[in-house]
Amino acid sequence: MLEAVEAGTVDAGLINHYYWTSAETPMQRAKLRFGDPGTASALVNVTGAGILTGAAQSAEAQELVRFLVSEPAQRYFAEETTEYPLVAGVPGPQGVPALAELAGPELDLSDLASLDETTRMMTEAGLL
């Protein structure tokens, strides 16, 4: 999507901000914009980690999850991949609004469980 906007193939698109901030070459046409609080374009995606039931007692699995939410790992995500950290005290990435400023729309994420429902919601929001 970012390449299509940059090439002028499409006028706008939705991407995760870190694709723009990590682009290998500076964008000339494509600009990063964050939506107004409460709008669909201010939606914040959440990445999760979990341990499968069959590995619930795995020390390695527990160690991995502990590491992912540790201060060093969260600092890496913020500084190197410009993702928002979830650990208090780790500063957010540079060049993007603070997470507290990005008030996404009120919605039940289970409403996005199907492509049809997701497409309907995006159409209603004027994004398609």
Rank of each mutant, 00 (worst) to 15 (best):
Ala103Cys: 05
Gln57Val: 03
Ser110Glu: 13
Leu115Thr: 09
Ala125Thr: 07
Gly50Tyr: 08
Glu83Asn: 04
Ala56Tyr: 07
Tyr84Gly: 01
Glu71Ser: 07
Gln74Ser: 07
Arg120Phe: 08
Asp116Thr: 05
Ala59Trp: 04
Ala12Lys: 15
Ala55Asn: 13
Glu79Val: 00
Leu52His: 14
Gly104Cys: 09
Ala125Val: 05
Ala49Asn: 10
Ala30Asp: 12
Pro85Leu: 00
Ala40Phe: 14
Thr82Pro: 05
Tyr76Asp: 14
Gly95Cys: 13
Gly104Trp: 04
Glu106Tyr: 07
Val90Ser: 01
Leu86Met: 15
Pro72Cys: 09
Ala59Ser: 10
Val65Gly: 01
Leu112Tyr: 03
Glu60Arg: 10
Asp36Lys: 15
Gln62Arg: 04
Ala12Asp: 14
Pro93Asn: 06
Val90Met: 01
Glu63Val: 02
Tyr19Ile: 14
Gly126Met: 04
Tyr76Arg: 11
Pro105Arg: 12
Glu24Tyr: 06
Phe77Ile: 01
Leu43Met: 15
Leu86Tyr: 05
Leu109Asp: 11
Leu68Met: 07
Glu71Met: 04
His17Gln: 13
Gly104Asp: 12
Thr47Asp: 13
Glu80Gly: 03
Thr123Lys: 10
Asn45Cys: 13
Leu64Trp: 06
Gly13Pro: 01
Arg75Lys: 13
Arg33His: 14
Gly126Thr: 05
Asp111Arg: 08
Arg66Trp: 06
Ala125His: 10
Gly50Asn: 08
Gly126Tyr: 04
Thr123His: 09
Phe34Met: 09
Val65Asp: 01
Asp111Phe: 03
Asn16Ile: 04
Leu68Thr: 00
Ala55Phe: 14
Thr25Asp: 12
Leu32Ile: 11
Thr118Glu: 10
Leu115His: 12
Tyr76Glu: 12
Ser22Tyr: 02
Leu14Val: 08
Ile51Leu: 02
Pro72His: 10
Ala73His: 15
Leu32Gln: 14
Gly104Tyr: 06
Arg29Ser: 12
Thr81Ala: 09
Thr119His: 07
Ala98Glu: 04
Ala88Gly: 13
Val87Phe: 00
Met27Tyr: 10
Ala42Pro: 14
Ala98Asp: 06
Gly89Trp: 01
Leu115Tyr: 14
Ser58Cys: 04
Gln94Asn: 10
Gln74Met: 07
Tyr18Thr: 07
Ala78Thr: 00
Ala73Tyr: 15
Ala103Val: 04
Leu109Tyr: 15
Glu79Ala: 03
Leu115Asp: 13
Asp116Glu: 14
Ser70Thr: 04
Glu117Pro: 06
Thr82His: 07
Leu112Asn: 03
Ala30Glu: 13
Pro97Met: 00
Met122Phe: 13
Glu117Val: 03
Leu128Val: 03
Thr119Ala: 07
Gly89Asp: 00
Glu106Asp: 15
Val96Ala: 06
Ala113Cys: 08
Ala78Lys: 01
Tyr84Phe: 08
Asn16Asp: 12
Asp116Gly: 05
Glu24Ser: 12
Arg29Asp: 12
Pro93Glu: 02
Ile15His: 12
Glu79Gly: 01
Asp36Phe: 11
Gly92Glu: 00
Ala55Thr: 09
Glu79Asp: 15
Glu24Val: 05
Thr39Val: 12
Tyr84His: 04
Arg120Ile: 05
Val87Arg: 02
Val65Arg: 00
Tyr18Lys: 06
Met122Arg: 07
Ala23Trp: 03
Met121Gly: 04
Ala100Phe: 03
Leu43Glu: 09
Asp111His: 07
Val96Pro: 04
